[in-house]
């Protein structure tokens, strides 16, 4: 799907990561790592908000050979921060996802896409509410609707479960699995929560604190007590549930 090859990004002279190479192969890819490992920066580089050296390929094609618009047709990006208290209705926020083709007059296709996206996420009853006055979990869904109306091939998400309670976090992943099944959209998601990541990631990529890839693969194979020591500097137990999914229980900081 998306592969990056020797990607380097610096803020000023300090490198965030150097010669990073990752091959995202699965439908649901999760990137984890300690604070300041460059996870968010990596997403911004993938989307093109930040310019990194190196190559990023989509299905084997170098993204730098594509125009901005073509690139945005492939990828959508969901920032980390919550939607501000805006006086736009949920419907209008989702509609803005189609901004590159919107004119003064709203077409049938716009209406179809927006309503379809809201309905698919079961938030069509919120359509006429102001996006600023709905709950955090609903706001996240509205943001997702805003990306879906563009029919992207890949959705990049920066810590989408932040500020969501346990149930909403699980619901969010249900939604993601459903989008993958229904629309064949791939995801690259930056996460903090290891246990949630282990449960849902098909491919987990672990960045270490120095902006290098520590491991990338199935959570079962790479989430180990040794990894937690080396990458996070914590002592932790890793146990396995009945499906063989690793569950991390942190003990103390080393």
């Amino acid at each position: 799907m998306i592969s990056i090859d020797s990607l380097t990004f610096r803020y000023g002279t300090a490198p965030v990561f150097e010669n990073l190479s990752i091959d995202f192969k699965k439908n649901l890819n999760v990137v984890i790592g300690p604070n300041a490992a460059g996870k968010s920066t990596l997403l911004k580089c993938l989307f093109g908000l930040l310019k990194a050296q190196g190559t990023i390929c989509w299905e084997g094609n170098d993204l730098s050979s594509l125009s901005k618009d073509e690139r945005r047709n492939i990828m959508a990006y969901l920032p980390q921060e919550e939607m501000p208290a805006t006086y736009l209705t949920v419907f209008e926020v989702a509609l803005l996802g189609r901004i590159s083709s919107l004119s003064w007059h709203i077409t049938d296709r716009d209406l179809e896409k927006v309503y379809g996206a809201l309905k698919g996420l079961h938030i069509e009853t919120l359509a006429e509410r102001f996006a600023g006055e709905i709950s955090g979990g609903q706001k996240k869904l509205v943001s997702i609707a805003q990306t879906l109306v563009r029919d992207p091939k890949v959705i990049l998400m920066d810590e989408p479960t932040n500020s969501l309670d346990m149930q909403k976090q699980l619901e969010l992943f249900d939604v993601i699995h459903q989008i993958i099944a229904d629309k064949d959209i791939k995801f690259i998601i930056v996460m903090h929560d290891l246990n949630l990541s282990c449960r849902h990631a098909e491919q987990l990529t672990i960045l270490d604190g120095n902006g290098a890839v520590y491991a990338s693969g199935s959570p079962k194979d790479i989430v180990t007590e040794e990894m937690l020591r080396n990458v996070y500097g914590v002592e932790a137990n890793v146990i396995y549930d009945n499906k063989g999914i690793p569950v991390v229980s942190p003990i103390r900081s080393l």
């Binding site: 989307f47 908000l49 901005k68 618009d69 945005r72 959508a76 990006y77 969901l78 920032p79 980390q80 921060e81 939607m83 501000p84 805006t86 006086y87 736009l88 209008e92 926020v93 803005l96 996802g97 901004i99 590159s100 943001s143 805003q146």
Partner: peptide
């Protein structure tokens, strides 16, 4: 209109 979203959100829409 998109400016009334957050800056990052507006940027992600290509603005």
């Amino acid at each position: 209109t998109a400016m009334s979203l957050s800056d990052t959100n507006a940027l992600s829409l290509g603005i």
